[in-house]
Design a binder for these strands. Structure first.
Lengths: 202, 202
DNA sequence: GAGAAATATTGCGCGCACTGCAATCGTTGT
DNA sequence: ACAACGATTGCAGTGCGCGCAATATTTCTC
């Protein structure tokens, strides 16, 4: 990777982090693009070369698609062959980007603080989850060999994302490992089975 | 209802409809608040007495909470006592506001056109669904007699809303009655059971 | 019905988000 | 070194969104 691209990444990161920090300090309405840019040592005009809106900068590190490798394995029917197991693995691999769990927890906690302080960021966050949801739906359809816009896949994907969101909610509070997070996800899946398949227990 | 309140409702409606119509005609970026206000015969400043943003006006008729009556019946364990049945009834009663199905279908179709033409409205729409989702979760928790922030209820509510969204997608295309819509919702619920309760088939 | 109280509408001014354009600066390949 | 490319910046402009004070309209009281 050349100097140019590294610099761009650094600038983008600096802008994002400045935006997040200032917003948590003062609240978004008291943070101007000018202030963010100054913090990142670029001109205000440059900010808009990177982000279309202030909000975009704040949510820039939220994943919007699946991990390509994990997706391929899922579509191929792996890694275990058990649908809910593999689905969980796909989601975990895609949404827990950094290998470092400590940093991961910090990121999630930070995002949570942001949402608490600035609730109108929630639509943007949900929209990004929705993007992932569509990717999940298409991956499911591919794996099952049905059309990409299959209704069953879309419903299942939406439910899976809901379960994922819910599982991630408790993360910042508890000191838990990746395996425990996966357990929580599995439990959420089981809840869905319990609720929507009544009388089919055991 | 006094004259004052009726007038306010009329103004709000006029602003919303003007905003929707103009947006579908020219695209949102080519529609100014000034133009919308002119269409509704109020001053631009008045627009902002009703809506915080242009986008808010466009999504003003999207429900954000449950029908109060239906909610009470659901919490009390009715109307049938079968969970998924009652959940479907609650959602149908809350999201299909107008008794007139023809108008309902027109509204949904209009909203769909809006989303096609202006994708950046999607976050706002999802956010409103999310509000409903939280109401559904609390209603479920109440009915089950568990704490309001119960994780299982929240997962189930999110999945239920996903199923509802999916069921509504086909509405504008097909000429179908309310009963057929309910059937589609029931099918979506069954899909969830199938997917997340493997090996538990009846 | 007339006047007072409450509330809605409006005009004005302002800060700032966001954009197109053209100039400039820094990076990259020959 | 020089050319080619791409990123940064300044400038000017549009329009959103809001606080405030003035005005118009409805509602309440007698």
């Amino acid at each position: 990777m050349g100097l140019r691209e590294r610099k761009k990444l650094a600038t983008r990161r600096a802008l994002r982090e400045a935006a997040v920090r200032l917003t948590l300090e003062r609240g978004l309405e008291n943070v101007t693009v000018e202030a963010i840019s100054a913090e990142a040592d670029v001109s205000p005009r440059t900010f808009f070369n990177y982000f279309a809106t202030k909000e975009d900068a704040l949510l820039d590190d939220v994943p919007v698609s699946l991990d390509e490798e994990a997706r391929e394995e899922f579509v191929a029917g792996g890694p275990t062959g058990v649908f809910t197991e593999d689905l969980g693995a796909l989601l975990m691999a895609s949404l827990l980007v950094s290998g470092d769990l400590g940093r991961q927890r910090a990121d999630i906690a930070l995002r949570r603080q942001l949402m608490d302080r600035e609730p109108h960021l929630l639509p943007g966050l949900l929209s990004r989850f929705h993007d992932v949801e569509r990717s999940v739906a298409s991956a499911m359809a591919e794996r099952a060999g049905v059309p990409l816009d299959d209704a069953r896949s879309q419903v299942a994907a939406a439910a899976a994302m809901a379960a994922t969101r819910q599982s991630m909610k408790g993360v910042p509070e508890h000191e838990e490992g990746v395996d425990e997070l996966r357990a929580r996800l599995g439990e959420a899946f089981r809840t869905l089975g319990d609720v929507f398949a009544p009388g089919r227990r055991g």
